[in-house]
Write a protein that binds this DNA or RNA. Sequence first.
RNA 1: GCCAAAGUAGCUCAGCUGGUAGAGCAGCUGAUUUGUAAUCAGCAGGUCGGGGGUUCGAGUCCCUUCUUUGGCUCCA
Length: 643
Amino acid sequence: MINITFPDGAVRQYAPGSSAMDIAKSISEGLARKVLAAEVDGEVWDATRPIDKDAKLKLLTWDDKGAKSTFWHSSAHLMAEALEALYPGVKLGIGPSIESGFYYDIDLGDRQIGEEDLAQIEAKMKELAKTGSTYTRKDVSKADAIQYFTEKQDEYKLELIDGLADGSITFYTQGNFTDLCRGPHIPNTSPIKAIKLTNIAGAYWRGDEKRKMLTRIYGITFPNQKELDEYLVLIEEAKKRDHRKLGKELELFAFSEKVGMGLPLWLPKGAMLRERLQNFLQGAQIERGYLPVVTPHIGSKQLYVTSGHWDKYGKDSFRPITTPQEGEEYMLKPMNCPHHCEIYKAQPRSYKDLPLRLAEFGTVYRYEQHGELHGLTRVRGFCQDDAHLFCRPDQVKEEFMKVIDLVLHVFRSLDFKDFTAQVSLRDPENPAKYIGTDENWVIAEQAIIESAEEKGLPYVIETGEAAFYGPKLDFMVKDALGRKWQLGTIQVDYNLPERFELEYVGSDNGRHRPVMIHRAPFGSLERFIAVLIEHCAGKFPLWLAPTQVKILPISDKFMEYAEEVNLKLRKAGIRTEMDDRNEKIGRKIRDTEMAKVPYMLVLGEKEAQDGTVAVRKQGQGDLGVQPIADVLAMLLEEVENKQ
RNA sequence: GCCAAAGUAGCUCAGCUGGUAGAGCAGCUGAUUUGUAAUCAGCAGGUCGGGGGUUCGAGUCCCUUCUUUGGCUCCA
């Protein structure tokens, strides 16, 4: 007998070779019907796979993450079966589950399919799912695996098998479909009841742009139609938060074909919002000993040859501009660091001057690939809330930790709770990608990991994601549709000080090289605001709202009083607008609600007589009549507390 | 850059197999003077993304180009 330990600590004995499904059945038939997979000693297994030795077991049902990914992975196989049935000869790449759903990469040869074909594939999937075919696992030798896919003429699978060790290869079969697959899978196809193929896209084989582009079909499935419907509603709701839609509706920013793609135009409301964020961070930075600097939008090409950026990114930059007479070459600045290095060099520096923290809201221009542009999150001209900290090697860690504190202060102030920290290290396999000495890389990577640890940041390590000049710590946030974007970033750089020959005089009267830390808590104002808009669905906190209060006179008889209230608020620094249209109050309220203005003050005969205002809060309705002074105090307090 | 799709009034969208471009909202004008999510009427508004072609005739069919969207690749 083997001992099976359940999550609650209970231990029960079963015959060796019992599967999780057998065990579930021994507990209750109802439970067994819901089991999709099992976690055996921390690893997700097929519920039907025999367990031979003592193990910890957790039965996974739809609500478990591991069950969902198994369910979706099995759905990918089901889709592949449908595709083979509909398009004989189709070749298959890979078909994993993803955060929400699954995809399969396929090569259709000369055939082309489009969105209109998805319904047919869905129908086929449903038909196949109903048969309730079991997913069966089979160990295969490498030779047999190669033979199977050679006969099937699927070069993609053969390439995958090529990278696998003999003895570790498994096939899974359901119905007429067999796939090279590590598993696990759900017991059979029947729980897959609701199916939606969401989109179709191209994807390079193995993510390599030099290789063939396959057709990727994305989909999502659920055990019942209701959950699918709910999911689709959720997606629709998320689309309403899209910053591109809200940016237009709330008159924050615009794009123009004539100005050029990826070059945002900030409308007055957006510009003021941006300015407030900038002032907020500026204030926090001044408190923390940062010094403002200003540098031009262009710099001579030589500056970037010195920095190494020309070599690395020259080909992928906007081309240099030249002076008409002398032919001198200048670049639109793609980053601010080289300019800041020259500011450092403008004066002799002592160890007593360090750390020197030079900050600039600097606009930079980068050539981003056409297809990569995306609203405000990926643009060609953007403003970095940049600063470069020049410090002694022994100050790196402390400065790094202070920056983490600043980033967290910014995130907290804007109620960003859902972020992940990502530590990007170099790829040890590919040292040629990076510049700088091995020793410095080790020191810098160590400093970052230690800082993250000591600050208690939950972080993930991404090997090979470092910048070419140094490792970094990025703060990643998701947009409304779940796409991940990098906002705040902190990067250690031992390289630029070297290239620019930056020095300071130490207490020993000798010359030493400072270390540089690049950092931007927002990342860029454009991207930050994009995420902020989606985060709050356009309902900005009072201190950021473009219009904080809208004054709504019931009719133009009360215009005089409305003007008086308006003036009072404005004098106190509240951003107001007045709706003096000849409209009914219901209409004015509706329009103001939809414009997401935080507060409305309704003014009529009663209010004019008593010197009061009827307060209405966006999304919350009528708050009742109050004296102006009270309302003003309430508003000012809310602004002060950044709520 | 690559794969796929879309582009009709300021916005949201209709326009069947080719036969002179349409609605709602927004805008303007007028009436209405209004009490917590849309008052009524009238007017104006478009080289149907740009260019080329097929046709007696193109928003509709074909080619090309630009932009946008969803992905892929890239991201100092």
